[in-house]
Amino acid sequence: MPGTAAKVRPLIIPGRKPGSGSVTSGGGDQRERAFMSNGMIAVLAVIASEMMLFSGLIGSFLIFRLSAPFWPPPALPRLPIAITWVNTLVLLTSAVTMFLAVRAVHRSRQRLLRNYLAITAVLGTTFLLVQGSEWVRLVAHGLKISSGAYGGTFYTLIGCHGLHVTAGVAWLVGVAVAAWGGRYNARNASTVEVVAVYWFFVCAIWPLLFVLVYLM
């Protein structure tokens, strides 16, 4: 058949030649209706993927947790519950401020948007700092990543979440800087929405980890 490539007859049927420009008026491309912005689909995909990542870690954690006779093992330090309660509230508050930021951008309220983004980033950073200082104390008390399944699962699971918060904060700072330049308004809100969805995910998964790792 490749031999016949040159001999292919033109279509006899009357019709319009595709791509010749006559099909669409004015030469503009036409598309099927978009479901949502590209960025939103992408971030939802990332979240789906992250959920599998966390499922793997949580699954591993549960296997060790449920088969262990003592949890935590006797010789190891307890996890700091009280301060982590506070920290949980910090993170959940940041989800609220993030929500308010989205509302602000939908109403094109530039000052509010900036402030809420900044507050959210600050709250996220606070969360990280508190976590970090607690880690330093735990390590000093002898809970290391190599301290059996208890230490191993604690640092990988909580550390993985910490990495996600760090990435979220970095992204937030970037968006906040752009917001300072007045980039976003009601008609150009999608970046803010996208980062918000990611931030909600990071906040939403934390209570689950808190319950599993600290309280259970």
Binding site: S49, E50, L53, G56, S60, K144, I145, S146, G152, T156
Partner: peptide, 21 residues
């Protein structure tokens, strides 16, 4: 793939950080 990433990360920790997953 994220599940593989999890497994590989845990394996690396076992090899390099002294964990015992």
């Amino acid at each position: 793939l994220p599940v593989l990433t999890t497994a590989l990360a845990l394996l690396l920790f076992d090899r390099m950080a002294g964990t015992h997953f």
